[in-house]
């Protein structure tokens, strides 16, 4: 009887058994709640200008992708609305759902405050994630960093743009080599196309232009050569 009870108890708690490692994963009730009923999903394609900023990132670790959109109150600087979509696993869905709640609850955080929310804070609110799945939640804050950068660029607060691990090409507009790489991956092939995508070009120094042209050639060769 005891054994049977234990078995049932253990059986009820295990949510996933890894097909290769046999590792058992347990998801908290909060994780399940957010996984099965994710909050703040973008349901309809946004019309131009509906959101103040957007960002899309991919995870090099597992290949998940995430897209995020925000509306910011111009007077208070607070996030009025945050919507997202993901091509990602259960943990990524639950973590991003919780993250979207954390940024918008109680009248919303300012963009600057929101940038201080780290994966470990999401984890606490979720009641933990299996060890191997923690990296899934990193995508939410990465997507937001990119969205925030877009917001700062759109509102002329270029000095606030943060791009990790990248080299700044134009320090006035905070354009980095990562931005050039992204523009090329989006299909830009010439200096003009890259400038159009990044809204740069006016007043750029000769030096920066040479630098950008070189980067365009480098990334075009890398990805399409």
């Amino acid at each position: 009887m005891d054994t049977q009870d234990n078995k049932q108890l253990a059986g009820a708690k295990i949510d996933v058994i890894n097909q290769y490692t046999g590792e058992k994963w347990y998801y908290s009730d909060i994780v399940k709640e957010h996984f099965f009923k994710p909050r703040n999903i973008l349901l309809d394609a946004p019309v131009d200008g509906e959101y103040d900023a957007t960002g899309m990132v991919g995870s090099p670790a597992c290949g998940d992708m995430m897209n995020m959109w925000i509306k910011v109150d111009r007077d208070t600087g607070r996030i009025k609305d945050l919507k997202w979509k993901t091509f990602g696993c259960g943990s990524a869905i639950a973590a991003t759902s919780m993250y979207s709640v954390m940024l918008t609850e109680n009248n919303g955080l300012t963009v600057d405050e929101a940038l201080k929310i780290k994966p470990q804070h999401i984890m606490v609110r979720l009641g933990g994630l299996p060890n191997r799945k923690i990296h899934c939640s990193v995508l939410a804050d990465k997507a937001f960093q990119k969205t925030a950068n877009d917001y700062y660029r759109n509102t002329g607060q270029n000095e606030k743009i943060v791009v990790e691990g990248a080299r700044v090409i134009d320090d006035r507009l905070n354009i980095t080599d990562k931005d050039i790489e992204e523009a090329v991956l989006e299909g830009a092939q010439t200096l003009e196309e890259v400038q159009k995508k990044l809204k740069v070009g006016v007043g750029l120094s000769e030096e920066a232009i040479t630098d950008i042209e070189q980067l365009i050639r480098f990334y075009a060769e890398k990805y399409y050569g």
């Binding site: 931005d179 092939q189 990805y223």
Partner: peptide
């Protein structure tokens, strides 16, 4: 493009390219 700066190791086939 979502993987920019992440050391993507595959060739891209952008529709726009």
């Amino acid at each position: 493009e979502a993987f920019a700066g992440e050391g993507l190791r595959v060739k891209a086939t952008s529709k726009n390219y």
